[in-house]
Every structure is written in C-alpha cells, then in structure tokens.
C-alpha cells in the first residue's frame, strides 16, 4: 500500500510547523517547494532543530542525523517525509 502523502497536504503541514519560527512574512506568504527555511524564511538555526522535531512529531517519523542536512528546502523535506512514510 502506498503510504506516501499528497505534496500539497505536506506543504500545508510544513507551513503550520514553520509559522511560529519565520522572520520573513512575505517569503512565507509566497512559499513554494523551492523555499529555503534559512535563506528565505530567515528561520534561525536553533529553530531549524525545532522544525525537524515538529516534523517528526507531526508525521510520526524519525529523521536520522545524516538526513537533517537535507531538510533545508520545502522540496527536499517533502522528499524525506515521503521516503520515511513509504518505508514505515
């Protein structure tokens, strides 16, 4: 059975997670798959850890240390979430 999630559903989930940490409202309002959490949303790196933990909680997955660095953009984060969901 395909356990992956629809891209737009994940994006909505990620927006909800990122919202408290963003420091650039305009970039957030115009968020796309290319949006980078640090460069565009100006999220500080300590809060990037919070986002990773929030993603783990929301999607009930465990992100390995070596996967953390791929979670810089919305697109790569969607890919990791779906890979994890698929391997569950």
């Amino acid at each position: 059975m395909d356990k992956t999630m629809d891209k737009n559903t994940i994006i909505e989930g990620l927006k909800e997670i990122a919202k408290p940490y963003i420091q650039d409202q305009e970039a957030f309002d115009n968020l796309t798959e290319d949006t980078n959490f640090v460069d565009d949303l100006k999220i500080n790196s300590a809060n990037l850890v919070d986002i990773i933990l929030d993603v783990e909680d929301k999607f009930d997955i465990v992100i390995e240390d070596k996967e953390m660095e791929d979670m810089m953009t919305v697109r790569s984060t969607i890919a990791i979430i779906n890979k994890k969901l698929d391997n569950k």
């Binding site: 940490y21 300590a46 809060n47 850890v49 919070d50 933990l53 240390d65 953390m68």
Partner: peptide
Amino acid sequence: IALKESNWRRPRFLQKV
C-alpha cells in the same frame, strides 16, 4: 530570546544537536 523562543528542554532536542 533563546530562553523564550528555543526550548532545548523539549524531548530529543539535545540528542539532535
């Protein structure tokens, strides 16, 4: 600000960093 905006005491935070 760190005290207010970053909760390092939440589960798994320290282990990630």
